[in-house]
Write a protein that binds this DNA or RNA. Structure first.
Lengths: 137, 137
DNA sequence: TGATATTGTATTGTGTACAATATAATTTTA
DNA sequence: TAAAATTATATTGTACACAATACAATATCA
């Protein structure tokens, strides 16, 4: 009976702890760029796809405006992005990289390989993990 | 080059999003018990092992006192636990279930099976996911 | 076209996470 | 045994997550 409560725990708790551990692993690397992990994710989307609306970022990252609005304001304060009103739809915000935001990508280049070194999983295991997580979503 | 930044993203981002999705899935179920997911995790440890110190809970859940102290105070306000000083060591807190805390386990019995229904992974996939997450930790 | 509904963000409030620091009790050691 | 180090928890400050709500711009339709 409490058995059930314990077993179930294992699956989701592992996921929860591993996700916390990942953002902990990123923290020291991202600190050099003065970014948090969710801020880094936003920058990744912008580096790859350019101008995005808040809703585009929300769809890409599975986050809502309550999370993104203050996060984007912090990126704006750091002069990494601009938040302008869309010309087509005055309700929407266009999120654009500033020059400084574009340039930051250079500094981020080393992060993936550095992080890979501190991870004990093989490429195959990482692929498997990714697939399972995506199936769960 | 930005390729690298994108690929890396996939692995850790999947984990991060899946973990968020899991706490979202738990939310409506736990709302009936007036618990959050991390509060539920604390209760699971207490239901299974009884009296714990803050540091025991921290070790079990990979969380520190900055997270646990306010969380435990909320559980205390809800009359689910007591936070007494340890007799052996006055620095330590003994976290004990109240009668109401013990009784809440009955109401939690259905959660694992209910949640399992809303998850699309097979038992084998869940086992695999758990193993990979634990290896990552 | 004017009322109604929808859409895109923003705001508010609650609850984590965690670094950095503080504080008090216990242990160690000179 | 008194000072120094260690240990256990608490506090402070910053930054997510997200539900609930608000609000203004746009779209729909009677």
């Amino acid at each position: 009976m409490s058995d059930q409560l314990f077993l179930d725990n294992q699956y989701c708790f592992s996921l929860y702890s591993a996700a916390n551990a990942v953002t902990r692993a990123y923290r020291p690397l991202l600190k050099e760029l003065d970014l948090t992990y969710p801020q880094y994710l936003v920058m990744l989307v912008l580096w790859q796809h350019g101008r995005q609306r808040v809703s585009d970022l929300g769809n890409a990252l599975y986050l809502d405006s309550g999370t993104l609005t203050p996060l984007l304001k912090r990126l704006e304060l750091k002069n990494l992005i601009e938040r302008t009103r869309s010309k087509e739809d005055e309700r929407a915000r266009d999120i654009n990289l500033t020059q400084r935001g574009v340039e930051l990508q250079q500094q981020a280049m080393d992060i993936p390989s550095t992080l890979a070194c501190s991870i004990t999983l093989s490429r195959e295991e990482l692929d498997q993990l990714k697939q399972l997580c995506n199936k769960l979503l």
